[in-house]
Amino acid sequence: MGPNRLQLRRVGSGRGRCQTGDCGGVLRCTGYGQPPNTLAEYALRQFNNLDFFDISLVDGFNVPMDFSPTSNGCTRGIRCTADINGQCPAQLRAPGGCNNPCTVFKTDQYCCNSGSCGPTDYSRFFKNRCPDAYSYPKDDKTSTFTCPSGTNYKVVFCP
């Protein structure tokens, strides 16, 4: 498989390891996968009867993604299909993906633990390649999208 594909080795029924996004060796993940991983995030039937959705690179990037509404007159989909793994800065490189700087450096500047942080050169690397995706934790204004509740969605990995 190429560098933009998840690599899975079966070890037994219901168990296996992924090069990126691994969930402690179980195939039915009930928690968070190990970074780097591209995330599709959504909250349905929220404030003002809206669905909120985004693609997040806050945990890094491993596979390209398309997250699009398919009904309800909502047409604004989002994509992150850039060659982030191939262009990843050396300090953020990981097998099969590109880490977010918080994962690597663990400082408030990159993790936003104090509540006050802004974009960095590393977050701009992600944002320049995937303008619709979250690039750091406070990147709400350009990265959260809405549709009326009841909308159907399609999430495609490696479009």
Rank of each mutant, 00 (worst) to 15 (best):
L44G: 14
F47C: 04
L50C: 02
L50D: 00
F52C: 01
F53N: 01
D54Q: 05
I55M: 12
L57T: 00
G60H: 13
F61W: 11
N62D: 10
N62L: 09
V63G: 09
F67M: 02
R76T: 04
R76C: 04
G77D: 02
G77I: 10
G77C: 03
I78E: 03
T81S: 12
A82F: 12
A82T: 15
D83I: 06
N85M: 08
G86P: 05
G86T: 07
C88P: 10
A90C: 09
Q91H: 15
Q91G: 14
G96N: 14
G97V: 13
N99K: 04
N99S: 13
N99G: 06
N100D: 01
F105L: 15
K106Q: 04
K106S: 15
T107E: 05
D108E: 06
Y110A: 10
C111L: 12
C111H: 11
C111A: 11
S114F: 02
G115F: 13
G115R: 07
S116I: 13
Y122K: 12
R124V: 08
F126V: 05
F126G: 03
K127S: 04
N128T: 15
C130N: 15
P131A: 15
Y136D: 01
P137R: 13
D139W: 02
K141C: 01
Y153L: 09
Y153E: 15
K154A: 14
C158Q: 05
